[in-house]
Amino acid sequence: MTHYQFLEPLTFKNGLILKNRIVMSPMTTMTSFYNGMVTSDEIHYYQTRAAGPGLVITGVANVSASGKGFEGELSVASDDMIPGLTQLAQAIHQNGTKAILQIFHAGRKTNQQILRGTQPVSASAIAASYPADSETPRALSVEEIQSIIADFAAATQRAITAGFDGVELHGANTYLLQQFFSENSNQRTDAWGGSFEKRLHFPLAVINAVHQAIENATSRPFALGYRISPEEIETPGIRLADSLAFVDQIKTKVDYIHLSMGSYQRTSLNDQTNNQTLLSQFAAHTKGVVPLIGIGAVTTPTDAQAVLADGAELVALGRELLREPQWVQKVTAGDLGAIRTQMSPLDMDELAIPSVMQTYLRTSFYQVMNFTDDSTNQVNYQNTLAPMEGFEKKL
């Protein structure tokens, strides 16, 4: 039987041990209750996929009411959410799998309908360039910024109480952490914006506050991860050099760094002369310092091995774990021929994919899901942003 490096365990510097290096990437289910409480459909969805990967990262949970980005989104904004989140963590903790709660604030990537009449907020009063109907947000006051930082810390404490093994700060896909880092969305002239160093102020403050919350609330190994988008396509906007410099600032402050890309083979979207994969360029900055999660269109064991060979320590599977919840188990058993790389729409109930998520996959993600009834050319997002990276408005 072939020896796969991704089936080997990994130990974080804080002592948290993963049984293997496969990560279930965070995916939007749109299945929570109106107020962000966990539903039984969500529990079943995660339970179906949890036993194989070493680590499961949930879809995003908002840390405050103003941070809700879409309907059906998880919330960790109040203690009322703890019982449901406890059930979710327990559902993931099968066969030694570790559970990470991804937390975020949507910032300007929402609208007044979702926020029940409240204007979205961001670093500056600048609307997103896409989608075309993006609303202009209100610039946050300094007091509100401090309050949201405290919300991230409080959310972390709730994740600890609920039994999760860590939190991941969603600083990618054009959400609030990225909005403060980006010159496109952050044009403040105070201590929270302007220069590169000042645009780092907010994400660094969130990281520090979360660290303090972890230190205060638990003595067990509890991971802090950070997800980052390598580039923006707007001008001005985040370029690869900015993100690499950002990683250099945070790589000793977090337990892992998680890239957000539609393809692990992606090269720069802005610099056509740069032919190196983004993954390898980030790995050059993280190697030996902090584990890097590579991601994007990973379907086969060969893909997963290629991600590790390109410099990552962990491999995230998203769409493939929707199609094949038993991916790790089948690879471990050498039963590669039984792995589904396509998905029939008729199988989605059997695969425990919630009904509202099924609609989402059949619309926004139709061309990347390898549906058996799709005769079009599949898009691999090697040279373009994918919907999951914030390019399209969520339904």
Rank of each mutant, 00 (worst) to 15 (best):
P236E: 01
E183T: 10
A172P: 05
A205V: 03
H201F: 12
F196N: 01
N173A: 13
G171F: 13
T189K: 05
F196R: 06
A245R: 12
L169P: 13
Q187L: 03
G225V: 03
G193C: 06
S195K: 00
I214Q: 10
N208E: 15
T189P: 02
D255I: 06
H201R: 13
P230E: 04
A245N: 13
R220Y: 14
S229I: 02
Y256P: 10
R199K: 07
T235V: 14
H201W: 07
E197I: 07
H201C: 09
K253C: 06
D190W: 00
S185I: 04
A191G: 11
K253Y: 11
F164Q: 02
I250D: 11
E234H: 07
T189E: 05
Y256A: 10
F181V: 00
Q179R: 02
V254R: 07
L204F: 12
F181H: 03
Q187K: 11
R199S: 02
I207L: 08
N184M: 12
G171H: 13
R188H: 05
L200M: 12
D255Y: 09
F246H: 11
N208W: 09
I233A: 13
N173L: 08
D190C: 00
N208T: 14
G171I: 11
Q249D: 12
N184H: 15
G237E: 04
A241W: 02
L224D: 08
D165N: 11
G237M: 03
Q187E: 06
F222I: 09
P221G: 01
A245K: 12
I233N: 14
P230L: 02
Y175N: 07
A191W: 13
D255A: 06
T174C: 13
L169I: 15
E215S: 15
R220G: 02
P203D: 10
L169Q: 11
T218F: 11
L244H: 06
E232Q: 10
I228L: 13
F180E: 00
E183V: 08
L244G: 03
Y226G: 04
P230M: 03
N173T: 14
L204E: 10
P221S: 01
S219T: 15
I238W: 06
V167T: 12
Y175Q: 10
Y256N: 12
H170K: 03
H201G: 04
A191P: 12
P230C: 01
E232I: 08
P221Q: 04
F164T: 04
F164R: 00
L204G: 08
Q178Y: 03
I257T: 13
F180Y: 05
I233H: 14
H211A: 03
Y256F: 15
